[in-house]
Design a protein around this nucleic acid. Structure first.
Lengths: 107, 107
DNA sequence: CTAATATTTAGCAAAATTGCTAAATGAAAG
DNA sequence: CTTTCATTTAGCAATTTTGCTAAATATTAG
C-alpha cells in the first residue's frame, strides 16, 4: 500500500472517507440516528438512542459503529455509559464539499 | 395503501424519495456518473457515459436506472440514442433540505 | 428485408447488508 | 467477589446489491 505520490494518496483517502460518509447516510435508520442526535442537542447515550428505535439494541449498535467509522459520530465513555456525540461540522462539510459541484453556478 | 391523512401521506412520500436519493448516492460509480454529467455540461448519451467507466455496459445501465428512479437523471430519446441529463436542482435541493437540519445555526 | 448500431432487459452467482438472538465485556453497586 | 447495568461483539439466516454474460429491443442504413 501507499506506493503513490502524496497528492494521489490524499485524493484517494478523501474519496474513501467520502464513500464511508455516503454509505453511512444511505440507511434510513442511520440518518434518523443523526437527526435524533441533532434534535437532542448533539449528545446522547447509546441506551437513549436505542430506546428510540424499533430495531434491536445490537442492530442499533451496529448502525452506530458504521456512523462512527465514517466519522459522523464519536463517543466518550462516562462510567458504564457511552455518550455519542454528533460530528456536525464533519457531516455538513463532507456532504457540502461534494454537493458544491452541483450547485447552480449562475445563481 | 394510502389509508392515511394527506399530510402524513405526503411526509411519507417525501421520506421515500429522500431515501431513494440517498441510496442512489451511496455507490461511488453512481456519484461519479453524476459528476461526469455535471462536468460535461449536464447531458450525455448512455454510450458516452458507459465509455468512461470500467464496468460493463449493462452494469452502467443499471446504475443509470437507479439514478433515474431516484429522479437524479432523466433521458430523452433521440433516434437510437438516449440522452441522459442531470437533474441538477432536484439533486441539490433534496440533499440540501436534509442537510440543512445539520448546518450550524450559530454561523 | 437485412445488417448494423445503441442500449436495455433477463438471469445468474458472488458479495455485502441487515436484523436477530445469545454470549461477552466492563464498570459499579451491594 | 458477585450481581447488575449499559453496551458491545459473535455468529447466523434472509434479503439486497452488484457485476457479469447472453439475449432482446428498437432505430437507422444499405
Amino acid at each position: 500500500m501507499s506506493d503513490l505520490p502524496p497528492a494521489k494518496r490524499d485524493a484517494k483517502a478523501e474519496l474513501e472517507s467520502q464513500q464511508q460518509v455516503f454509505h453511512a447516510l444511505s440507511h434510513p435508520a442511520r440518518r434518523q440516528i443523526l437527526q435524533v442526535l441533532r434534535f437532542r442537542g448533539g449528545s446522547m447515550t447509546a441506551g437513549q438512542i436505542a430506546a428510540r428505535f424499533s430495531c434491536s439494541w445490537p442492530t442499533t449498535t451496529r448502525h452506530l459503529n458504521i456512523l462512527r467509522k465514517a466519522g459522523l459520530v464519536a463517543f466518550e465513555l462516562e462510567g458504564r455509559e457511552r455518550h455519542y456525540k454528533l460530528e456536525l461540522d464533519y457531516l455538513a462539510n463532507t456532504v457540502d464539499s461534494w454537493l458544491n459541484c452541483f450547485r447552480d453556478s449562475k445563481a
